[in-house]
């Protein structure tokens, strides 16, 4: 193999990994996009809710017989998807009893329109979930090992007999499921009655209220869905990535970077934002040491909020 071939192989390998990880990040970001992009709630606990999604998947898979019943290949996917409804309920009530107390009409006109209260409240929730997780789940990293985690599809060779790309099967399946979930979510929001109510409530809560939409409930549901979607993404990540109760911190910046990059109020935008972050993270390994992978994300994140805070796909006009 020549040096060019090695380089080409490395680039293709990073590209493939970036695309697959990007799909999963895209799904996570779509979940946060429902919350941050549509409702404008900063939720610091999103990463930790994702952590709950990972542990839910793990317990469903190992503890509730899904492994025995569905086998090691379909089982984890089913468990990840089932984590969605569980986290929906948690998200719904977390919003109803905590977040809603400091958002919406209740706090209109207070300092910063209640944004600071949200930031700090969700930070508190994040601390409780992280450290409560430590108490309940322990600090030992766990992972959902399946036959897929350690096997790969080999693409190529692309250049003579060389330049082959290994694609981890667990990531491949995860990416496929991610795309399916995003499509279902998109159809739900744009085609169903309740989805349209959510959009109306997000667009102009006051007008929606006058049109007879229960805006409070719509917000609880949107928060629940956002949580559930991120939790499913977490469950899928868990099939190839070992995790512990602090894992949320690693992903919370990824998610915000993706959502900001994608622009507000757009589900598809958030997905592409996450995709770009995934690509940046994986491609950065070509030029940066592996420990600085996440630093690359922070740099991109900072660049985006400095240069284009309205996102690549969004528009934002400030009024004096």
């Amino acid at each position: 193999m020549t040096e060019n071939m090695i380089l080409a192989e490395n680039i293709l390998q990073a590209l493939a990994a970036g695309l697959l990880v990007g799909c999963l990040y895209g799904l996570m970001c779509t979940g946060l996009g429902m919350i941050f992009g549509i409702m404008r709630v900063i939720n610091f606990a999103q990463g930790d809710l994702m952590m709950l999604g990972m542990y839910s998947t793990w317990y469903l898979f190992t503890g509730f017989g899904i492994l025995a019943f569905m086998g090691a290949i379909i089982g984890p996917i089913v468990a990840a998807i089932l984590a969605g409804p569980i986290l929906f309920v948690i998200g719904y009530y977390m919003h109803k009893f905590l977040v809603a107390q400091v958002t919406g009409i209740r706090v209109a006109g207070s300092e910063g329109e209640g944004h600071y209260a949200q930031l700090i409240l969700t930070l508190g929730i994040a601390l409780i979930l992280q450290n409560g997780g430590l108490i309940v789940f322990g600090s030992e990293p766990v992972s959902i090992r399946t036959p897929l985690s350690s096997s790969a599809v080999i693409l190529g060779p692309f250049w003579g007999d060389f330049v082959e790309v290994f694609v981890n099967k667990a990531r491949l399946v995860g990416a496929g499921v991610s795309i399916a979930v995003v499509i279902v979510l998109f159809l739900f929001v744009t085609r169903t009655r309740i989805g349209k109510a959510l959009q109306a409530a997000a667009d102009n809560s006051e007008a929606a209220l006058y049109m007879g939409i229960d805006v409070d409930r719509a917000y609880h549901i949107a928060f629940g869905i956002g949580t559930a979607v991120t939790a499913i993404a977490g469950g899928l990540v868990a099939t190839y990535y070992p995790f512990q109760p602090y894992v949320g911190l690693e992903f919370v910046i990824v998610m915000y970077a993706g959502v900001v990059l994608g622009g507000f109020g757009s589900i598809i935008g958030a997905f592409w934002g996450g995709m770009i972050i995934g690509l940046v993270q994986q491609m950065s390994t070509l030029v940066l040491p592996i420990q600085l992978q996440n630093t690359a994300i922070f740099v991109v994140f900072l660049l985006v909020i400095f240069l284009r805070p309205q996102g690549l796909f969004g528009r934002n006009v400030e009024r004096v």
Binding site: I125, I128, L129, N131, G132, G133, I135, P245
Partner: peptide
């Protein structure tokens, strides 16, 4: 993790 929970 009791410290963190207290702060939270």
């Amino acid at each position: 993790g009791i410290q963190g929970v207290v702060f939270g």
